[in-house]
Design a protein around this nucleic acid. Sequence first.
RNA 1: GGCGGUAUAGCUCAGUUGGUUAGAGCAGAGGAAUCAUAAUCCUUGUGUCCGGGGUUCGAGUCCCUGUACCGCCA
Length: 570
Amino acid sequence: MARHLITSAIPYINGIKHLGNLVGSQLPADLYARYQRARGNEVLFLCATDEHGTPAELAAAKAGQPVAEFCADMHATQAKIADGFRLSFDHFGRSSSPQNHALTQHFAGRLADAGLIEEVSEKQVYSNADGRFLPDRYIEGTCPNCGYDGARGDQCENCTKQLDPTDLINPRSAISGSTDLEVRETKHLYLRQSQMRDQLNAWIDSKSDWPILTTSIAKKWLNDGDGLQDRGITRDLAWGVPVKRGAEDWPGMEGKVFYVWFDAPIEYIACAQEWRDAGKGSDWERWWRTDKGADDVRYTQFMGKDNVPFHTLSFPATILGSGEDWKLVDYIKSFNYLNYDGGQFSTSKGRGVFQDQALDILPADYWRWWLLSHVPESSDTEFTWETFQQDVNKDLADVLGNFVSRITKFCRSKFGEEVPSAGTFGPAEEALIADLDRRIAAYQSHMDAIEIRKAAGELRAIWVAGNEYLQSAAPWSTFKTDPDMAAAQVRLGLNLIRLYAVLSAPFIPDAAQTMMTAMQSDDWSWPSDAATALAALPGGHAFTVPDVMFTKITDDQHADWQTRFSGTRD
RNA sequence: GGCGGUAUAGCUCAGUUGGUUAGAGCAGAGGAAUCAUAAUCCUUGUGUCCGGGGUUCGAGUCCCUGUACCGCCA
């Protein structure tokens, strides 16, 4: 039995995410996790919330809550939404957990011992009114280049010129508006990634099977300009993991915390400890320590393309630099962006569909199916209500839902609500079985390779094969002349429903459960061959006719949602 | 400005190491059937494969160049 460690990029805590955040990491990771479990493999599927940093502090302030309380509430909210989408995390952790605090400090200590941490003094803008240092982008002022009044300390969004905060004319705090700013000297820790460039380069080079999107981004950061740059891993903030060297205090670093990009990926490991501590498992090290049983684990990460540098370089640098036997990622599946109706999803402009709204208007399976079958694997993908309506109605309601409906209702009217026993399979049935064997093999190989769109296409073709068979076998016709043959045809059709439940469950778990329940079965075993799988429900086995599985999206709903989620356009 | 990605049928996309008349789903058109959520099934593609050069016996596929969109970095 193979063992799969699977992680999804961890979503930031500052608010409810839109669909773009779902499709780029959590949903495909869930698909893969469900598939591997279905194949009988051992899976540990982890995700968490990324809770530290300035945006979280500001979001909490805006909500009028202490930041710890805000994060706890928002974590619960995101966990509820994840559950709504049927994301099957073995544990949904928090980067603010005590486990992550300790582990982050541990890694910092190991890296320091290995000579990979450097203390650097630098000048940063301090706001007396806010009582804090301000990150570059939280300083606003007049652009020295174009005169735009709302330029940020990192870049003027009017003329796109890159800036230093000290370039701004009449700088002010973006948080309070205060102009009582001063430049102060402060000391920070830098991770000397540049020292590990050759090691990282060789590691990336060894990953010839990774998606081009993943390796090209990594190589660019390794080789661009002066090569991989050292990065600051601490900040002058209150909310975060306090800087410590292992369990020891770090002289000169009092009151500082680690920067989010340092502690967030470490949460992947800490999350396994949380999982253990929550009583969901007994041994987390056999998943994460190659010297303690994780040698045979295959570790796959899922993320949007914006997260690739941290996962290909920074986090591996942390792990390799520690000198300990931590598990490195085996395969990184990265995704492009999902666009919304001619533009980008925008949190600030309220453009696009947010995850809670999506679940309010339609069941999870509708979203799961459309998003996964259109997942942006090779380039950005466009969401439009028109294609969403068309595709979901066609694939789920017409092709799959109607198949279940037509065969169960036909059987009920002619043979009653049990699988008919009479008749034997002929050439048409054998041909279907051979076709299914080929298609299931193709489906598996696409799923094994995490080629999601291809897998979705093959699954859809498997649904279509059932309709093709019924159409040519025409039991409603044979019933008049040869009821026994009709019985055999219906028996095959009913067994297809159970097989579809098994094969479809990774994509649409709720509908799969509906199908399985209707067939009054609990046999979720993955098919070894179609002939055997289609004999699972013998003659005489009782079933029920399920309610309509997928109601169609109407034109009125389409129009209503198109308007409601358009947001404010400029 | 530097780098990377993308550009294939009305729409969403496949096209493996260059090799025969460029494919799939949806939409459109025609037909069959009537068990079913008016659902299904069959038939139907005259596409300057973004433009322009080049390499090659042969390029959607490689090289150069231009254009458009997206992203990352400075």
